[in-house]
Design a protein around this nucleic acid. Structure first.
Lengths: 267, 267
DNA sequence: CGCCGCGTTGATGGCAGTCAATTTCAGTGG
DNA sequence: CCACTGAAATTGACTGCCATCAACGCGGCG
């Protein structure tokens, strides 16, 4: 049985179940992930949409793994706006802090979100005597770095359709562990809007525009089919004319490469 | 010839000092930082503004430490725009990837930028037999995560003056290792603009506005004095009225907390 | 001096936030 | 099966902010 089907079963058999933890533990153990060596230390907990997992300022005693569902790391601004600083999907780890407290709060956003909590100190002690485990921890931290930089790339785009298009491609990549042509969005338009730092109306309008331009098709409100991936990737404004590009300050640093390139430190 | 000497030759060709590497090495050793144990493996190289440190797709053979100056991790879009996915200042580490190649390019942006390059494999081997070193590596990775999430918070703000205000506060924090009331911006307006994903003109206008509102003062174009830190922090739009806040969808999830709280995973 | 990089200011148009109305959909209970 | 309800999603109208284009001032440097 593939992990997706198992997760599916967990979904269908949701609701008050007596021995769910043992069942989730089985799911966790049957799916390969970097911290598998320490699964005997783990506490598995289901969360409902909107439920808080951990909050800013609390002791950062646990690292978390998303077994199923989705969550977000975020802050609420004084004006009531919520800002998302990490979108956690199935297979992601989170909860890493350099200090002793969580820097941000985390909430579940999908209906059936199951998280595995690894006690940080005990895992770190285990890593002290297991170099391979230590390398795995580094790896998942580096994965988190890449995830955040990808989000920065999306947020840095100019127009809203670009952001939404990039978001769809990112979801297709992350949810299927590789490029796929269709993807089931795990979150609402409002959640997408907060992730992209635009308004929910703009997300809706952008999706409509992408549909009309023939880049995507939708089945229902959550299922997205990617029709023209190239156009979606290069869904950017017109490349500037060569003459303009020459005068563009942005390229100058790169163009005038130093006469004597530095010795690449491939020592 | 040892790598250090090679780097030294490259150094002397770009700047007219003969034994600069030994000097930079002295600086590095005299300043506490997490990877000090492996400083004997390091290659120190000075870079000029605009010089490329490493580029996307190259083998990720080194981790880097900013000894002095500043650098940026970025991509160039087809339209010529540059997007910054990490601003590296004095004391920051970078170059972490989960895969075997760099995900992004890095360029120096300050005049005198000196970087220390740690050979990844050798440091990782050292970490295999030194748990404390492994913990230090984790720590600097977690620092990078926090840095990126802070940048996401800034990019997610709405108006340009908010972004610029947050940027000034972040610089004051990072460059002085704690809150300070004045800060020397290490980069140009154009670089700030790319970091904040706004236009350079907007950065300039935002600074003018912050000056006129009495939140900051400037000496020359780089020196910023923070006059009203609180106003700068809360430089956001008006908090919504209580009635509006009640109807605001964004708060509902948090307000209607679940009847049965989850078992806190403090097992 | 002339050039160039940097910074600032002005004028204008387009995109997106906001408010509002409407439709669709899922869940619930009769 | 259907009516009802509230959330989710869409669409429209309007306003405001910012990107863009343009011009100009400033300082370093060959």
């Amino acid at each position: 049985m593939r992990p997706e089907e198992e997760a599916n079963m967990a979904t269908s058999s949701s609701s008050p179940q007596s021995n769910s933890t043992a069942y989730y533990r089985h799911i966790l153990s049957s799916r390969p992930h970097p911290l598998q060596k320490t699964d005997h230390l783990v506490v598995i907990t289901p969360f409902q949409r909107g439920q808080e997992v951990c909050s800013q300022g609390q002791p950062a005693d646990h690292w978390y793994f998303v077994v199923s569902g989705a969550a977000r790391q975020c802050v609420i601004r004084p004006d009531g706006r919520r800002q998302v600083v990490d979108l956690l999907l199935c297979g992601d780890f989170f909860g890493f802090t350099a200090g002793e407290e969580y820097d941000f709060s985390v909430e579940a956003i999908a209906k059936e979100t199951v998280l595995a909590a690894y006690p940080r100190r005990r895992v770190e002690m285990a890593a002290d005597s297991d170099p391979d485990l230590a390398r795995q921890i580094r790896r998942i931290a580096f994965d988190a770095i890449f995830r955040l930089q990808s989000q920065l790339l999306i947020l840095g785009r100019i127009t809203a359709p670009e952001k939404v298009g990039s978001f769809i491609l990112e979801m297709a990549m992350r949810l299927s562990r590789g490029p796929a042509d269709s993807v089931m969005l795990p979150i609402t338009r409002y959640d997408i809007a907060e992730y992209l730092a635009v308004s929910a109306e703009t997300v809706s309008r952008s999706l409509t525009e992408l549909k009309q331009r023939g880049l995507i098709k939708m089945s229902g409100t959550r299922m997205v089919n990617i029709i023209d991936r190239d156009a979606l990737e290069e869904c950017e404004r017109e490349p500037m004319s060569p003459s303009t590009a020459l005068n563009c300050r942005r390229d100058r640093d790169v163009l005038r490469a130093p006469a004597s390139p530095p010795a690449p430190p491939y020592g």
